[in-house]
Design a binder for these strands. Sequence first.
DNA 1: CAGTGGTCTAGACCACCAA
DNA 2: TGGTGGTCTAGACCACTGC
Lengths: 249, 249
Amino acid sequence: MIYAATLSPAAPTFLPLYRQIKALVLRSLEAGEWKPGEAIPSESELAARYRVSQGTVRKAIDELAGENLLVRRQGRGTFVATHGEPREQFRFLRLAPDHGEAGSYASRTCECRRGRAGAEAARALDLKPGDAAIAIRRVLLFGGEPIVLEEITLPAARFKGLTAERLAEHEGASIYHLYETDFGTRMIRAEEKLKAAAADAVAARLLDVAAGTPLLSIERIAFTYGDRPVEWRRGLYRTDRHHYTNALF
Amino acid sequence: MIYAATLSPAAPTFLPLYRQIKALVLRSLEAGEWKPGEAIPSESELAARYRVSQGTVRKAIDELAGENLLVRRQGRGTFVATHGEPREQFRFLRLAPDHGEAGSYASRTCECRRGRAGAEAARALDLKPGDAAIAIRRVLLFGGEPIVLEEITLPAARFKGLTAERLAEHEGASIYHLYETDFGTRMIRAEEKLKAAAADAVAARLLDVAAGTPLLSIERIAFTYGDRPVEWRRGLYRTDRHHYTNALF
DNA sequence: CAGTGGTCTAGACCACCAA
DNA sequence: TGGTGGTCTAGACCACTGC
């Protein structure tokens, strides 16, 4: 192994071995050498491949598992995380009913068109003025009731061929799972900005509330490998019978 | 060391050594053997004390550091985390201005009285019908502007002697730091529920907005060691020029 | 320079799972 | 029963801090 310091004399004057291994595993992940849901090689195989001890591989994998990129399963192996599993389903959707258990979930796509991105979305996604984008508008239903109105903007280059039909086939499952299966794009993390806003006429109609009703407005930028922003969205949430949950540590 | 399985034949049939060490360190932390901001004994000292290897102590401390209960500082030692440090200051206050840098911060206490807890607070804090509570009402100012109106409810038994004067002396610093210094109560984690709500007359006056303005409503329960809830609060946030930030992983 | 946390190794053994 | 991840140890050495 070669210390990064040897290659780039900048910043952290020293890069531990396990971080270099982590970067190598990350590169394989990003390149799709192991697909979401698949097992990666065992710790001892990786140790042999990279010529380091198993403990060093272990520490690299520990960090990747901590970042939800890998999932360890004792006795079975280490797997590439996927948004397809029920457990991961609601990691990015933190809405809960005020009372009782979470009921059914479904999405209804209103619109899916190709065109220019809005100013905010273009800035968030680093799109150049001429770049095409895909705009989706949909309503999320909980227990059959319309609770969330969402606008999603995607760079057309990465999500070529995404259609309303394909979205319709996928209703009920996480859209991030569709991104994985159809476009090989896995969402790693997201940043959100929350505000309160009054419902305009469109939102009022689609969410079945009076115009002016306070709604929770959530703007999100989602990132894939390499911290590349690849999805922008704004959601308007009815919070009369639901709330957004957050945990602080 | 004794395996937990020997003591309680229930649930996880096996409790690793490092978890037992972690529990012992946690007990010392909770008992105040080492105070916030102080250094705990070195890894080798703890290894000797508990008769385990340094690596095992290390793994226990790793987890506690991951939960923000301890802070490692290479070359210096491991310290008990505190809300007094600037770095920890805004861990529980996730408001940011829409544009520009975060400006000054201050709090202005409107009211601090002893009495009965509200129904919601009493339920959240596990208070019995007769238990006394302390109710605080305050306004948080950012850049000199009133942005947040907060009601805080505390169990009177734990926060005996908390007065408006003491709060006033503490303006500008985190109230969680005051809890630590004056009452030996350190907040470990919190759960929040976010909603959008219309400003009522009182909120409108104190936040200098029109009645009916959409506000972000945040209800929080904060926990100390042993997952004991010891603070309930509801905040109403003006979000016309600020937003609540959240990161999803 | 001594002391602390941080890294790396090698090896033994345990817990869990699937076949 | 064999393979995988999980735990534990002992020891060597490195990086950082403060005296």
